[in-house]
Every structure is written in C-alpha cells, then in structure tokens.
C-alpha cells in the first residue's frame, strides 16, 4: 500500500473519534488473583492484559544463577491464542514473544529496587487476552500495577505508551491496531514518567530525524497521562483493601 491513509480528519478527529493527544479509555483493577503475590488487569481500549507477580522468593531451579547483590527478575510474555483476529498457533515461545519478554524485563528492571533482595528471584507473568494495538505498553502498565500489588519496592511507576505520526505531520498518541495497520512507523517508549527517564524505546520503522523529537515528546506525554490514571487506580485500590481491614476508619479519623 503506497498511499497512507489520513488518520486525523480535517476536523481533527481520529478514526475512532479520539483527538490526536487523547489516550484510549483505560480501565484497570489490581489484585485480581489470590494465588500470586501480586496481580493486575488492564484494558487500554480493546487491548486487555493480565499480569501476575510471584516473589520475591528463593531462587528456584539452578541455584548458581542467584546473585549476591540483587534479585533475579524473570519475565514471561504470552498471548492467548484467541487474542488476535486470526487465531495464533501457540501462546508463547515464538520469536516475537521471546523478544517481548526481554523488552518487558528491561523496562521493569529500571524501576524495581532489585538490590533490596539479594539471593532471590521475582517472576512476572504477562498474558495478553486481546490485542488491539499498543500491546507492549499495556503489558508494561499491567506489570507495574501487579508489582505494586505484590508490594515490591519500585523507584517510581514505569509506564509505556506508543505514538505515531498522522498524515505525516501530526503526532498522535496511543496507537490502535487499525492505526498501526494504516499508518506509518510507530514509536513505543517505556519511561519513568516522574523523572522523565526513558528506559526503553522501540520503532517499528525508521522515523525521519525531523519528526522524531515531536513524536517522542508525545509518547512521553502519554506515559505521564497513564501514570496519573495508574496512580489513581492504586490509591483507590489501597483504600478498598484498607477498608476491608478496618484501616479506613483510622484514616477517616485522621482526615477529620
């Protein structure tokens, strides 16, 4: 396809009705499983991801891998066979999944305070239930929530977001599958939004150097917007959990 479609119409709306700087609707929930130490579910638009965290616990299997000064972090990415419009052959183990696992690990390592847990191990499992663009960002965001749920100390939130260029000119944030297919290259970044550190950056194709700064700025802005949403979710979750343990009474007292 040589002609790229116009992704932002003359009136400034994208194909699904968003404006260029608007995220898709984000819904999230922490503590969705009881088995793991921490878990979370996130929906970004129609992209749906589950994350579970086990640990920190003793190093299992090959003990020689254990490190004296930090915890080992394992990531496993998988996609449900029904998550894409064509059924996938297998959920994990293909090249793309392995790559995703490595990228996830890289982003999360930047936030986890691994030095607090020598000789131990943290396992993070991420499963995509439905993919509609922006799979990697949703996975990072879900994993962050699950880590917080597990009570593992983080330097700060690690959030990810994608961005692209519409009509070769207008940067837009949080790219849906439809836009990925019709549009140009997509830039994905994972960042520590408070300190504005980028921990991972990936491009589906090359961007022209003139475009890169504005697309990057847009993606970073997206990360910050997501951080606000995650933060809200964490606070309300903590409040809920607190309520059930009678902690809310004390907090109310303090407020009063």
């Amino acid at each position: 396809m040589s002609k790229k479609k116009e992704l932002v119409s003359k009136i400034g709306l994208r194909l699904d009705g968003r404006r260029a700087d608007e995220l898709r609707r984000v819904r999230c929930k922490m503590g969705v499983f009881s088995q793991p130490d921490g878990s979370a579910y996130i929906e970004q638009g129609l992209t749906k991801v589950l994350a579970a965290v086990y640990g920190p616990h003793q190093v299992r299997g090959n003990r020689s891998k254990a490190q004296h000064d930090s915890a080992i972090v394992n990531c496993q990415f998988s996609m449900a066979v029904f998550s894409t419009s064509e059924r996938k052959k297998r959920p994990r183990g293909d090249r793309k999944s392995s790559e995703m696992s490595i990228h996830l690990r890289q982003a999360l390592l930047a936030a986890i305070k691994v030095e607090l847990y020598p000789w131990s191990q943290i396992d993070i499992y991420v499963e995509v239930l439905h993919a509609d663009g922006g799979v990697y960002p949703a996975c990072v965001n879900a994993a962050t929530l699950a880590l917080i749920d597990a009570g593992i100390p983080l330097k700060e939130y690690v959030c990810a977001c994608s961005a692209s260029l519409a009509n070769n000119d207008i940067p837009m944030v949080d790219i849906s599958h439809q836009e990925e297919m019709l549009g140009g290259p997509t830039l994905t970044i994972a960042a520590l939004p408070m300190s504005e550190k980028i921990v991972l950056m990936e491009m589906s194709q090359r961007f022209h150097i003139d475009h890169l700064p504005k697309v990057m700025a847009k993606a970073l802005k997206g990360c910050k917007d997501i951080k606000v949403i995650l933060d809200e979710a964490v606070r309300s979750h903590v409040e809920d959990v607190g309520c059930s343990t009678g902690w809310s009474n004390t907090s109310q007292k303090i407020k009063v």
Binding site: L15, D16, G17, R18, D21, E22, L23, R24, R25, V26, G45, L46, S85, E86, D132, S176, Q178, D225
Partner: peptide, 24 residues
C-alpha cells in the same frame, strides 16, 4: 484527556472478527 462512555462497533468479515472502538 477524559474517559468517555463508548460503544463498540462490530465488523464481521468473512473469517475475521474485527472489533473497533468508537468514541462518542
């Protein structure tokens, strides 16, 4: 940015089921 109620639009092709978001 603000979240909005939305309705999903289904587009069922021959073999593929495509779901797209439609924001109101």
């Amino acid at each position: 940015f603000s979240t909005r109620a939305f309705i999903k639009k289904n587009k069922v092709g021959n073999y593929l089921k495509n779901i797209r978001e439609h924001y109101i």
